[in-house]
């Protein structure tokens, strides 16, 4: 019953529909894209500076690489970063947050200390050190780094929520009935925060995508392959905007904005699905 209800509202929710639609669209582009293009993302496949045309749907770059092909392959990096980086950040954040918030006391302090230390560890320096030991920096290693660094705010939020939930009556009741901490967290606290957790995951997903774009932009992106962030960086370094190559400079940023805001849309939609009260409003 509950599952059906969830699906029913999920499919009827406009925000969910729009958000999911956009994300699925780009996901599909990522999957099908490579078969729609004959080029390699970094191959010089046409004349430089070419406007969008039949041969090059989104024109070519300064050097004559096909922009559409770069986007198709760049999307892959984007989704990987979102899934791996965002997923990892949420997972770590959840574990730390639940334990810290529920257990409290010294354990809380220690985890809090760990959270603080991670907050102050320099992402940049870490990336460069890791880069120095890896033969090259790939999308996955970038995602893992982002995941390992982005979790503190989820942890804090989850901790705060757990903290206030745990002193509520139903948790006290469960505790008095002799349930183990683990069980209380999983059975009593987590379900009460489900919508919040989904929200965290989606926000982390989007956050990881944006973080990767920033890193790419300041020159700490993957040293091999292509990503939307690298495309933007290249477009800027080669003055695509003043030179009027809008078909190169604009799409990567717009696509990232579209995907991430679609995720936010889904997030809001999910909220409405989980909280029947919102539907009444």
């Amino acid at each position: 019953m509950k599952k059906n209800e969830f699906l029913y509202f999920a499919l009827r929710n406009t925000r969910m529909q729009i958000g999911l639609g956009i994300v699925l669209f780009f996901f599909a582009v990522m999957i099908i894209g490579p078969s729609l293009t004959d080029y390699d993302p970094n191959e010089y496949s046409g004349p430089a500076f070419a406007r969008p045309s039949e041969d090059h749907w989104l024109g070519t770059t300064f050097f004559g690489q096909d922009v559409f092909t770069q986007i198709v392959y760049g999307l892959r990096a984007t989704f990987i970063v979102g899934a791996v980086g965002g997923g990892l950040a949420t997972l770590i954040g959840l574990i730390v947050g639940f334990i810290a918030g529920y257990k409290g006391g010294i354990l809380d302090e220690i985890l809090n200390m760990l959270t603080n230390i991670v907050t102050v560890i320099p992402t940049l320096a870490l990336l460069i050190i890791i880069a120095a030991y890896l033969p090259y920096r790939g999308v996955v290693s970038q995602s893992i780094i982002i995941g390992c660094i982005a979790w503190p705010w989820t942890a804090r939020a989850v901790r705060a929520q757990t903290f206030s939930l745990r002193s509520r009556e139903f948790v006290d009741l469960a505790r008095m009935s002799g349930m183990s901490s683990m069980k209380i967290i999983v059975q009593e606290i987590a379900p009460n925060m489900l919508s919040y957790l989904f929200m965290a995951l989606i926000l982390q997903f989007g956050g990881a995508i944006l973080a990767a774009a920033t890193l790419d932009f300041i020159g700490l992106g993957p040293t091999e392959g292509i990503s939307l962030g690298l495309m933007m960086q290249n477009a800027v370094l080669w003055s695509a905007i003043p030179l009027g190559l809008w078909w190169w400079a604009l799409p990567p940023g717009m696509i990232i904005a579209a995907i991430v805001s679609a995720l936010y849309f889904m997030n809001t939609g999910l909220d409405e699905i989980f909280n029947p009260k919102l539907r009444e409003m």
Partner: peptide
């Protein structure tokens, strides 16, 4: 949403 979801540097350059 869209503003928040826009990569910062890209928005700033525009």
């Amino acid at each position: 949403y869209v503003f928040t979801a826009t990569p910062y540097m890209w928005l700033a350059i525009l």
